[in-house]
Write a protein that binds this DNA or RNA. Structure first.
Lengths: 235, 235
DNA sequence: GGCACGGCGATTGCATGCAATTTCTCGAAG
DNA sequence: CTTCGAGAAATTGCATGCAATCGCCGTGCC
C-alpha cells in the first residue's frame, strides 16, 4: 500500500479505524449482521490489516461488533430481546441522569438547559424536524452531563450510541415533534424545581415512549444512512 | 518463540491475554498506574507482542487500562472523583436490578435466592468471612441475573469488576458481616413480597454502605493480591 | 548553577509474512 | 436430485521486522 491517511481526524491509526468503523455502524451505514472483512476494510482505508484487527477487537469489546474466532467479524446483531433490554436500560439511565440533574445542576447549567429548550420550541412550531433533532440531541446530552457522574455518563452515551441505528425513523410518527417537546418540558420543569423524582419519572416515560415509537421501525427495515457522522438519534 | 500456550483456558490468544491481564488488574495484582510494557508482557506470557497489543486495546476500551499514544499503557488510574462516580453508579445499578428482580424473578429464582440467603446466615454466625464472601458474590449475581435484562446485566457486572480492586478490605470493619446479612435480608424480603420500590431502595442503601466502608481503604493502600482468580468484592 | 539542545537507547506503531482454520467448489456416490 | 467429501481458495491469527516517536542523558552555552 502507499500514500498517507486519507480520512478522518488525527489520533493513532487504530483510533481512526475505531471511529471510522464505529461511525458506520452507529449511523446504520453498516447493517447488523454485515460481514466485516479485515482485508477489505484494510484496503478500503488504505492501512494494513493490523490496525483494522485492533479496531475490530475494541469495537467487539464495546459490543458494536461480534467476533467469531477464525470466522471473522460481523456488525453486532441484536436480538429483539436484547434490543428491548437496551431500550429499557436507556430509560432507566436517563431517569437517573434527570434525577441527578435536578439535584446537582449548577444554576448556569439550568439556565442553559432552559434557554435551549425554549429555543427548540420554535423548531416544533416550524415543524423543522432536522433542526429539532439537533436540539433534541443537545438536550439529552445536557441531561447526561448535568448528572455530574462520569461513569453514568459513559454508560449512557455508550448505550445511546448502540441504540442509535434503531432510533432513526421515529419522527415519522405524526405529532411526535410536539409530544416530544411537551415531554421535555415536563423534565425541564421538574429539574428547575429541583424535583429529582419527578424529573426521573418524566425522563423514563419520555424514553419509553421513544422506545415504543422506534421499535415499530426496528423490526423490519434497517435504514442505510449516509456515511457522514451525523448527530444520531432523536427523542 | 516456541512451544504452545502454557496458561489459562481456551479461546484465542488475544482472549487469553485479555483475561490474564484483566484478571491481574481486577484482583489488584497489577496496581493502578503500573506500567504495562508490551515486550515484557509478551515475554511473560510467551506470545508475540501482537496479541498483547490487541488485548491492551480491548482493555483500554473497557476502561481497565489507559493508553497514551506512543507512550505505552498503564493500569487505569481512577481519580477519587471517578471512583466515587462508579460507586454511586453501582448503587443505582443494583437498585435497578433489585427492583426488576422483585418484579420479574421466576418463582424458582426466588426460591433459590431465599435458600442461599438463609444458608449464608450460618457463615455469619461462624464469622466465616471467606465463605460469606462467596455467598455474598453469589447473592449479588442472582440479583443481576434476576433482573432479566441483558444490557443492565452487562453494565452492572462491568462496573462491579472495575470496582473490585477497591472493595477488597471492607470486611475488616467489625460487625460488617452481620450488618451485611441484615441488609441482604431486607432486599430478599422485599423481593419475596414483589415490592420493587423497597427492594431497590434497600439495595441502594446496601451498596452505599459498602461504598463508604470501601472508600476508607481505597485512599491510601492498594492491596497486592495473589494472581489467582478469586471471587472479588464483597458487600 | 541552570537550561536548552542533540544524539542514543528503548518502546511503540504499523506493515508484511507465514501457518492454521474455515469456507467454497466441484465431483462422485447413493 | 440430494448428500457427502476431498481439495483448493480465501481468510483469520500470530510472529516478526522496520520505521517513527519518546524519553533519557550528556554536552555546551548562557
Amino acid at each position: 500500500m502507499s500514500g498517507k491517511r486519507s480520512l478522518i481526524r488525527s489520533g493513532t491509526t487504530v483510533d481512526q479505524m475505531v471511529r471510522a468503523i464505529g461511525d458506520r455502524i452507529v449511523t446504520g451505514f453498516l447493517r447488523p449482521g454485515e460481514k466485516l472483512d479485515e482485508t477489505s476494510l484494510a484496503a478500503r482505508f488504505d492501512v494494513s490489516r493490523t490496525p483494522v484487527r485492533e479496531a475490530l477487537g475494541q469495537l467487539s469489546a464495546m459490543g458494536l461488533v461480534e467476533r467469531r474466532p477464525n470466522r471473522g467479524a460481523i456488525v453486532a446483531v441484536v436480538t429483539q430481546e436484547h434490543l428491548a433490554s437496551m431500550f429499557e436500560s436507556m430509560a432507566e439511565l436517563e431517569a437517573i441522569c434527570a434525577r441527578f440533574s435536578a439535584e446537582r445542576m449548577t444554576s448556569s447549567e439550568r439556565r442553559a438547559l432552559e434557554v435551549e429548550h425554549q429555543a427548540s420550541a420554535r423548531m416544533v412550531r416550524l415543524g423543522a424536524e432536522e433542526d429539532y433533532e439537533y436540539f433534541n440531541t443537545e438536550f439529552h446530552s445536557r441531561l447526561y452531563r448535568g448528572a455530574h457522574n462520569a461513569h453514568i455518563y459513559e454508560m449512557t452515551v455508550m448505550t445511546r450510541s448502540r441504540l442509535a441505528p434503531f432510533r432513526r425513523a421515529q419522527f415519522m410518527l405524526p405529532g411526535r415533534l410536539a409530544k416530544s417537546w411537551q415531554e421535555h418540558d415536563a423534565i425541564v420543569t421538574a429539574i428547575m424545581r429541583g424535583d429529582g423524582v419527578t424529573a426521573g419519572n418524566s425522563a423514563k416515560d419520555h424514553v419509553s415512549i421513544v422506545s415504543k415509537a422506534s421499535s415499530v421501525f426496528a423490526l423490519g427495515e434497517q435504514p442505510k444512512g449516509t456515511s457522514t457522522t451525523m448527530p444520531v438519534t432523536a427523542g
